[in-house]
Nucleic acid binder design. Structure first.
Lengths: 187, 187, 187, 187
DNA sequence: TATGAATGAGAATTCATTCAT
DNA sequence: TATGAATGAATTCTCATTCAT
């Protein structure tokens, strides 16, 4: 792992544990085993570091998600995969997931380029529109569908994250069905 | 409004706009029209101010919520009222709602007494247990129900908060039904 | 002397001896017997301190100069007084005079408000124009007269500043006559 | 132009525009199109670079001046040539002239070897002594003569540097006569 | 109660300089 | 010769907090 990645790794751990304000750049540098100056050699400002870390994590997540989705999958399967694999990723990368939330709920979001922010939502929204067009899901505003799926995912994640691994799978599968029932025309 | 309240009011606005780190106590004092020292006369530390503000807002929310619930209400009605009135309160008190989220997603939560944090959840959890006992809702873990309700509420809030007021009511009512369908044995 | 003035006094001595870059604000504070923070309580930035010190010194010089000039003085007398008293002031306030030159030859001039910079030059220029109108001095561009007077003054100052006090007076008086001969229609 | 000269050229431009403190060595290197390390390969320290640049410019000026003076010239002609050609050089090499002033008014002069500093003054002082011995100029202290000539030159330069080229020549010639009148026994 | 000057620890950042390649 | 990553001391500035009035 080169120095830049060392710095990102240390920043992730410390930011998640102590928050942005609670983590001086000097602590990150020390933790990464590099000098104070080196950190600023790679990242012009602390803000820049926060942003780059966000982007790196988002790339990580995207790579993971896309590696599991195939263009041949049906809409339902695609949605289910996105749902399930996102939760698995979050469970396997708690710090990274936490970090993303942390940025989203902070004044630092404004630094993140729109394109990065919309990477997944764009995909998901197209999926929802297609599902609506094909009458698979209810005829409600796309944004409403999107919001409901999102908050459902975050809810399930926060619930299963405290469960032993063997119970997680059942809940995740089941909860997707609950969500699906909610989105599709109820009988 | 006395000085203590002036300070709390200014702190709310500034914290929500600029974040905790981005808001020096001196700015709060100036905005409140009091001296630097006076702020520390009422609140021993900045941390204390953050905590007291949280408590004050939580009291505000509780007062509002309880004023709409009657012990005679059925379980479903109670839940619906909690759902709907919380959203209305959040829409009418955006800064306050935002502030609560901000604290929840920050290292400052650890400063908030458990009792304050659980004020509503305690109520809600009892409600859910009663509903489960009476077979009104599915036989799933109480925490799962609770989590799903919560995230649903936050999702709906974030969706309707960008809508014109006249469209809000329909969505809120409708979305409660979706939630209810999800919690109760389907069909 | 209050703290603000202590800071200005220490800044003057240190800036003249070590230059702007060679004088950390921390050294100024220590020399002034105040804390690091106090310096920034009175002067928002180091730049601001540099500027305020310049203004304070210019006020000092103006007060001195004006206290010696009377509206009844003839043009020649007024010019002579400005010439002579400026040199005396510079000799009695070497650090201050040096500081003014230092600012003038540095990128910090751009921070000094035009009005402050022109305080004396404005006066002097009007004097020269009057002298030209009354045919007392040669009919050359006002700016040229002004420039020549100025550089002559600085030259004389730099020469006499290394002389013992008793020799200074003669040179100063004599050199004014040389200047006067140069400005007026020769022979 | 080899790398060493590239560096000197970039340093000149940047130092004049932004000052010594305002010009990091890294900026100089980038502007010169060389790496950070290369600059320090040619100049051991930034201070050294400042000094070497001064020396290079002084050599430039001397070469120019000497190429116009002949041992056969009379004292008056020699002085006039020094006067006039210095001003022309300064007008044609504004950055270089500015740089010399900048060093002279900075704490960096102490780094410049005496020999370099006195290159011209030595010549000029001998000239003045000769003129005094031959009763061509007034019997005043040599240093006073020297100082007055110097400040006169700088004054004229600063005046004509803002003039269109065609007006410069007249002023320069004329101003030398004014100076000469001042130095020689009047009337 | 209220003030606001004073404090000083701490933080982000800069930059001359080194050195392995 | 030339590079540019790496260093870390130094610097400016911020801000929560104290305290005499």
């Amino acid at each position: 792992m080169d120095k830049r990645e060392q710095i990102l790794a240390s920043a992730l751990t410390l930011f998640v544990e102590f928050g942005f304000h609670g983590t001086p750049t000097s602590k990150i540098a020390k933790e990464a085993g590099v000098s104070n100056g080196t950190l600023f050699h790679y990242f012009a400002t602390k803000e820049e570091l926060i942003k780059e870390l966000y982007i790196a994590i988002k790339n990580d997540l995207n790579t993971y998600l896309f590696s599991h989705i195939s263009p041949d999958d049906s809409i339902e399967v695609t949605l289910k995969k996105l749902f399930i694999y996102f939760i698995y990723w979050a469970l396997d990368n708690r710090e990274k997931n936490h970090y993303i939330q942390q940025v989203l709920f902070s004044p630092h979001i404004s630094q993140i380029p729109e394109a990065i922010l919309q990477e997944q939502s764009h995909q998901a929204i197209q999926l929802i529109e297609k599902a609506k067009a094909e009458k698979i899901i209810k005829d409600l505003p796309t944004d409403l569908h999107y919001t409901l799926v999102n908050s459902h995912i975050m809810g399930i994640y926060s619930y299963v994250s405290n469960l032993p691994p063997d119970e997680q799978k059942t809940i995740i599968e089941h909860s997707f069905e609950m969500l699906w029932d909610m989105l599709t025309e109820s009988k």
